[in-house]
Computed example of a mutant assay.
Amino acid sequence: MSEQLASLPPKKEPFSFSAWLSKHNHGNRLLSLIIFLPPALLLFTIFVILPLGEAAYYSFFKWNGYGVPTNFIGFDNYTRLFKHSAFETASLNTLKIIVVSLVIQLPLALVVALNIYKKSWSNSVFRLIFFLPYILAEVVAGLIWRFVFDGDYGVMAGMAETLGTEPWYILADREWAFTAILVVIVWKYFGFHMMIYIAALQGVPKDLTEAAKLDGASRLQTIRHVKIPLIISGIKVSVFFSILGALQTFDLIMPLTGGGPSHSSHSLVTYLYTFGITRMNVGFGSAVGVVLFLACVIFAFTYQNTIQKERG
């Protein structure tokens, strides 16, 4: 009997896709790299590395964008940049956007998300309403609010007429123009961060919140000690997008004020556009672009290697 069993062919193992994938995983990864990596590297080199290299090269020349740059001036563009009062104003304004985003916009988005994250038809309606400003193109949003702030024909004009006061041209006021821009930025983008928080809150296990209620925790205590610690990863992502977006603010400012009045409402990007492109000073604009790129890269690497690497 044992001899008969020994002569039988070995039993064939049933096919397992996971075992096959594990066996051929190294080869598949290598094949994926060969197929997908070269096109990605080519596109990244053409559209990112080469333009950055050219911008760094042009920043050492006084050049209007025509012909081949020949007037080499070294670091004069950078020296002029850091001594320019409008650049100081643009840097301060960009810092204001970051502070307002972190102190007002993100907490507002979190408060709204905590109130409408549960699934219901009414909450869905509110989510749509609050998310609508983010759907609008930045230029369209800027034009809408420019009409709202207009002292002759807009909402501000109507309010002034109703109250019997002189019309207020807020976008032409050096002291208040950028404050108006900050209001529009908060209105435009808080819905995006709200949706990030809603997605994170919907992933919080209900068992934990119910256990907290059974233990006698109030709503605020549940939010502070249960919900917020569990969505801290979403908050970190939201902060990252908020700061990086503040460094790149452009489309909203141009239709509202164009950086005016008297260059008082520039961000770093509108400053680059105004003093580099529109004035045909491509060398100087390249220097601004290099400084802005370095600021974004330093922030991104620092944030991802410190804050986002922390356990949370």
Results as ranks from 00 to 15, higher is better:
Arg29Ser: 13
Leu30Pro: 03
Leu30Ser: 12
Leu31Ser: 09
Ser32Leu: 15
Ser32Pro: 03
Phe36Arg: 00
Ala40Leu: 15
Leu41Thr: 00
Leu43Ala: 15
Phe44Val: 04
Phe44Trp: 13
Phe44Gly: 02
Ile46His: 06
Val48Trp: 08
Val48Asp: 01
Pro51Thr: 06
Leu52Trp: 09
Glu54Asp: 13
Ala56Asn: 08
Ala56Val: 03
Tyr57His: 13
Tyr57Phe: 15
Ser59Ala: 14
Ser59Arg: 01
Ser59Glu: 02
Phe60Glu: 03
Phe60Cys: 07
Phe61Cys: 09
Phe61His: 13
Phe61Met: 13
Phe61Lys: 11
Lys62Phe: 11
Lys62Asn: 15
Lys62Gly: 07
Trp63Asp: 15
Trp63Lys: 15
Asn64Thr: 10
Asn64Lys: 00
Gly65Cys: 08
Tyr66Ala: 14
Gly67Val: 09
Gly67His: 06
Val68Cys: 01
Pro69Ile: 05
Pro69Trp: 07
Pro69Gly: 02
Thr70Arg: 09
Asn71Tyr: 00
Phe75Arg: 12
Asp76Glu: 15
Asp76Thr: 13
Asp76Phe: 04
Tyr78Gly: 07
Tyr78Arg: 00
Phe82Gln: 07
Phe82Lys: 11
Lys83Glu: 14
Lys83Asp: 14
His84Asp: 15
Ser85Arg: 02
Ala86Asn: 09
Ala86Ser: 14
Phe87His: 02
Phe87Ile: 14
Glu88Cys: 05
Thr89Gln: 11
Thr89Phe: 08
Leu92Trp: 12
Leu92Met: 12
Asn93His: 01
Asn93Ile: 01
Thr94Cys: 06
Lys96Leu: 11
Ile97Met: 14
Ile98Ser: 04
Val103Leu: 04
Ile104Val: 14
Leu106Ala: 04
Leu106Met: 10
Leu106Ser: 04
Pro107Met: 04
Leu108Val: 09
Ala109Arg: 06
Ala109Thr: 01
Leu110His: 00
Val112Asp: 01
Leu114Lys: 08
Tyr117Leu: 06
Lys118His: 14
Trp121Met: 03
Phe126Glu: 03
Phe126Met: 10
Arg127Met: 13
Arg127Gly: 06
Leu128Gln: 06
Leu128Lys: 08
Ile129Gln: 03
Phe130Arg: 04
Phe130Glu: 02
Phe130Val: 03
Leu132Met: 14
Pro133Asp: 09
Ile135Pro: 01
Leu136Met: 13
Leu136Ala: 11
Ala137Gln: 12
Glu138Ser: 13
Glu138Val: 06
Val139Lys: 00
Val139Leu: 10
Val140Ala: 13
Val140His: 02
Val140Asn: 06
Ala141Gln: 06
Gly142Ala: 05
Leu143Gly: 09
Phe147Leu: 15
Asp150Ala: 05
Asp150Glu: 07
Gly151Phe: 01
Asp152Ile: 10
Tyr153Ser: 10
Tyr153Ala: 09
Gly154His: 01
Gly154Lys: 09
Val155Met: 13
Val155Thr: 14
Val155Gln: 03
Met156Pro: 03
Ala157Cys: 06
Ala157Gly: 12
Ala157Trp: 00
Ala157Ser: 14
Met159Phe: 13
Ala160Lys: 06
Leu163Val: 08
Leu163Met: 15
Thr165Ala: 00
Glu166Phe: 09
Pro167Arg: 06
Pro167Met: 00
Pro167Ala: 05
Trp168Gly: 03
Trp168Ile: 11
